[in-house]
Design a protein around this nucleic acid. Structure first.
Length: 101
DNA sequence: GTTTTGACGCTAA
DNA sequence: ATTAGCGCCAAAA
């Protein structure tokens, strides 16, 4: 994808409130590419360790990439409970970027 | 140029 | 709550 897309994706993620999570699809929509949820995941897979990619999960509240990094730990640190790769209270802590635009 | 892959999403059983 | 099937689209093969 183009640089702009990637830039926008990062931007949305940085807007995510602490202790909340959002989804690939929601971000895709927010940046104007409703059907590019997969590409959102793609940009998230190659960047630094410190970037808060753990705030992004799939639409069913599942952590897909927890096998790569310690997302669960980081989330817990921020008050997000994860049980078997599944985010507890997902509906409660889900943050929709579309509301903030 | 064509096929496969993949950190996805939605709907219907 | 789970599973199966289909739609989606850029990147890699």
């Amino acid at each position: 994808m183009n640089e702009l897309f990637e830039k926008q994706v990062f931007e949305i993620i940085m807007m995510t409130p602490k202790g909340r999570v959002t989804s690939y699809g929601a971000i895709a929509k927010a940046v104007g590419f409703p059907n590019h949820s997969r590409q959102v995941g793609n940009v998230l897979k190659n960047y630094d360790e410190d970037f808060p990619a753990h705030w992004v999960c799939n639409s069913s509240g599942r952590i897909t990439a927890s096998c790569q990094r310690d997302f669960v730990g980081k989330l817990k640190l921020e008050g997000v409970e994860v049980k078997d790769g599944k985010i507890q209270n997902f509906k409660k802590i889900f943050w929709n970027p579309l509301q903030e635009l």
